[in-house]
């Protein structure tokens, strides 16, 4: 399991290798599926085009909340390993912002684990986005559709 909060960009290949080696260290030969997801900064929002986003977080709690979430995903979907990276600070359009990876015996658990991590991350990890264009910036409002996605996992159990 790994959970990183960092300002610098990340390398998907390195993260994939780390996830795979952790999974095989735990259960040799039992990982039949790895699903990864990467989120990018879009160059357009409700108010028009933007230059990028500035991400604020709660140092200490962010890392703990993300680790707790990954542990839950591993337990719930019987993953052989899982990991996530979320960037903070200033991130420009089209750059990578978040990555999650789940390894499991079969594909459905790996897909479900990755969806669960993203849906729950959007509701329980203390990160806040502010979109900026030039010197102007606007906080992103939490979306009802994100709440609904997280609630689905909470009620499905």
């Amino acid at each position: 399991m790994f959970a990183y909060i960092q300002e610098q960009d990340f390398d998907q290949g390195e993260l994939y290798a780390q996830l795979q080696s952790q999974a095989s260290a735990k259960t040799i030969g039992n990982t039949g599926a790895i699903v990864t997801f990467t989120g990018l900064v879009r160059d357009f929002n409700n108010a028009g085009d933007i230059d990028g986003i500035e991400l604020e977080h709660y140092p200490g709690m962010t890392e703990k909340a993300l680790s707790t979430l990954i542990d839950k995903a591993i337990e719930r979907f019987s993953l052989t390993s899982a990991g996530a990276v979320h960037r903070v600070g200033r991130i420009y359009n089209n750059e990578q912002i978040v990555w999650v990876g789940c390894a499991a015996a079969h594909r459905q658990a790996a897909f479900d684990g990755a969806c669960f991590l993203m849906d729950m991350l959007k509701q329980s990890v203390p990160l806040w986005k502010k979109e900026f264009k030039g010197d102007n910036s606007t906080w992103v409002e939490a979306k009802g559709s994100d709440d609904a996605a997280a609630l689905k996992w909470m009620s499905e159990r």
Partner: peptide
């Protein structure tokens, strides 16, 4: 609200030295 870096609600009981945080709904991901 969070107490000692765990989400909590307004009825959560506090102890001396606790860290209490207030923030809007989160928007990561």
């Amino acid at each position: 609200t969070a107490k000692n870096q765990q989400l909590c609600d307004s009825s959560t009981v506090l102890s001396p030295g606790d860290e209490v945080a207030f923030f809007p709904p989160v928007t990561g991901g």
